[in-house]
Structure formats: structure tokens, C-alpha cells
Amino acid sequence: MSLVYVALALFCIGLYGTLTRRDIIAVLASVEVMLGGATVLLVGLSATSNLAGVSTPPGETSGVGLVILVLAAAEASVGLALMLAVARRLNTTRIDELDEVSG
């Protein structure tokens, strides 16, 4: 059970950072923390639990982890590219200054 607490704490710390940070890069880093916490929980539960008497085959535990890993890497690289493009065109990386489309 302590695994659930720790992984969820990581997720919620990341959530807090995502909500409060003003710089795009810090928001991206916080999103990575959220993803990491969720991955730890998923892989950990998949490796150790036998809910309803069924346990996951070890290959699929790692397989799910790899899927998340690749998704998160793609997400991070596209996010950073967007950040660079925004920084280059608008000269800011503060999300509260990017209010062109807000009413």
C-alpha cells in the first residue's frame, strides 16, 4: 500500500507544479513528474498485484512501461519543440503572457 501512497504523492506533486508554474519548461517538467508517478504506480501494481487471482505476465508489465516511455518521450520532444517555436516568435515562455486567443 505504501507504493500507492508514494506514487500518488509523486503524481500530486507533479499536478501541483503543472497548475502553479508560469514557465512553459517548468510546466513540461511537472507533467513529466506526473507521468513518472503514474508509470511507477502502473508498473508496480502490474508487477506485484494479483487482483482477482490474476497476475500480469512479466513481459506485458515491461511492455506497458515501454509504451508509456515512448509516448512520454514523444510528448516531451513535441512539447519542447513547441516551446522553442513560441519562444522564438513571441519572445516569452511565460504561459500567462500567451493570451492572444483568450477573450
Partner: peptide, 26 residues
């Protein structure tokens, strides 16, 4: 209710098992 189910010793995710999973059900 997850807490009570955390009883299994993790099986090693060996490269063989991963490739079987990735090229099989996944």
C-alpha cells in the same frame, strides 16, 4: 482495496518475455 492484493513477488521482465509480449499480444 488494492493494498491486500499486493502479495506477489515480481517476475523478472527479461528481454525474452518482453519480446514475446511485444510481438505477441501487444
Amino acid at each position: 482495496d488494492v493494498g491486500s492484493a499486493l502479495t506477489v513477488t515480481p517476475l523478472p521482465g527479461s528481454p525474452d518475455a518482453i519480446s514475446a509480449a511485444l510481438l505477441g499480444p501487444m
